[in-house]
Design a protein around this nucleic acid. Structure first.
Lengths: 274, 274
DNA sequence: TGAGTTCATCTCGATATGAGAAGAACATAA
DNA sequence: TTATGTTCTTCTCATATCGAGATGAACTCA
């Protein structure tokens, strides 16, 4: 059950006093990922005010809970914050084709020095998007290569990293990356990083960027085509060859599968098993 | 980032006024699963007050946010609610061996008729536990067979189901069951439903209860023993044969693997793929 | 004692995987 | 234009895994 039970609903509403409750704030934070120049990038904003002023953080902010403003659902808040703080337009615009899913909720006491804050984190997969423009409370906004953030497996950032992340956002980002790596194995979400039409080598580049390791081109090709519903051929062929030569690859679009069966397991997970 | 930035932290704290913020409540709800008599059961409590008085619901309640009471972390709140509302003792007692993980957060406006409530759901896997005793706000508490709740894939309950769940708890439970089914494929968490020592047929019964289908005993046996770190032999043998005959099965305990590789894929997922 | 059940292991064909090879198509530099 | 190197795509082949069925021994219950 949810809040404490009352003898009668109208009695509760009449006696309602927000000060009687522990003050809590609910926010959304978004881990937005994309591929740029063959490398995995995350969308970050630079904080325009205290605390952590000047540091980089995940885009996010308050959920409109319904007091003064109209109540909004959590995924709507995630899209709104993404749009507000980056200048990217919402569902109908550049953010129309992004995949959005809930990542997890972070509420450890003290994670925000001001008050008790419960943050619902969302994970977004986007095809290559334009550079963001700072808006809302952000002093700056940019796509940042994930490798440049020096993230350790523990969720901490390694010493010497220039861009330190505010709050516990390094942990949230680490969790988001792990989720993304897993999702690529069992779901066709790698196609969410590509345009409407893409080639198998492009798709392979997505896997290599997210997993951080090179794949066997021949086996990858065979595998992608053998999994039912992963991709479907457009019949067309790319009008250019590879960047450094090679024949013109064929074009595909995302299929109707929601799960990859069998899965595309990544190599060298031996270390992670125990 | 989290709450709206302030120019200065002390200025913020001085000007702090809870009424200036949208009133939000944060709760935890727990989907606690176990196996009883070969069937998957979920822990439910009967509501002692409005709204949804008399209906069944997931155990849960307010997170102590830090106003009047000491601030508690979200997983601690989940364990506390589980203990309070069921009479089961906490980390050191009957709840000591349960696996607990975050399931997701539910915050759609209107999901609680009283006010805006954000509920962080947790998923618990437990070995066979004693019958719960109602406590806290609960009028009753019981392990209920999941099949008796008439859950559809949509998260709704089928008409004619006697035990209707309060709030959106049918959806939360449906999501929890789906998570449990997935987790059994890639992780050794099925052992969390067993005692410290168990037999391969017992483990198979867990998979059959959660997945709702019978497995090939021979292949299952081969598979469990071939996955590194899933189970390790105790050298001992059960002192009784099967319920309806058969030789005494050998005893095993959980191994040190965190991931099953290769995974134990469940049959007949064809329908779910698209 | 006999009938039926279950554990544990094995066999066999079908399928999936990793590693490598090869030919054709293309970009780039000489 | 030619030469060189890269890449796409399709093979091959040995190995590993999987589903389905069969078998014999061990056990419970009537």
């Amino acid at each position: 059950m949810s809040p404490e039970p009352m003898r009668d609903e109208s009695a509760f509403l009449a006696s309602y006093d927000p000060r009687a409750y522990d003050p809590v704030a609910v926010t959304v934070d978004v881990v937005a990922l994309t591929i740029r120049d063959g490398a995995l990038h995350v969308l970050l904003v630079r904080r325009g005010g205290a605390p952590y002023e000047g540091m980089w953080a995940l885009p996010g902010g308050f959920v409109h809970a319904g007091g003064r403003r109209e109540a909004e659902d959590l995924p709507d808040a995630a899209v709104r914050e993404l749009a507000e703080e980056t200048g990217l337009s919402g569902k109908d615009g550049a953010l129309g084709r992004v995949h959005l899913e809930q990542l997890g909720t972070y509420g450890t006491p003290g994670r925000d020095p001001r008050m008790r804050v419960i943050s619902v984190a969302y994970l977004a997969f986007a095809p290559e998007l334009p550079d963001p423009e700072a808006g809302g409370d952000a002093a700056d906004a940019a796509w940042v290569p994930v490798d440049a953030l020096g993230l350790a497996e523990s969720g901490d950032q390694r010493p010497g990293t220039t861009r330190r992340l505010a709050f516990d956002h390094a942990r949230i980002l680490t969790d988001g990356l792990e989720r993304a790596r897993d999702k690529l194995e069992y779901t066709p979400l790698a196609t969410a990083f590509c345009g409407a039409e893409f080639t198998i080598p492009e798709l392979r580049a997505v896997y290599e960027a997210v997993w951080g390791e090179e794949l066997h081109a021949g086996n990858f090709h065979r595998k992608v085509l053998s999994v039912p519903g992963f991709v479907e051929s457009t019949g067309a062929t790319s009008d250019k060859g590879g960047r450094r030569g090679g024949p013109r690859p064929r074009l595909y679009r995302a299929g109707d599968a929601r799960l990859l069966h069998p899965a595309l397991l990544r190599p060298s997970r031996e270390e992670e098993i125990r």
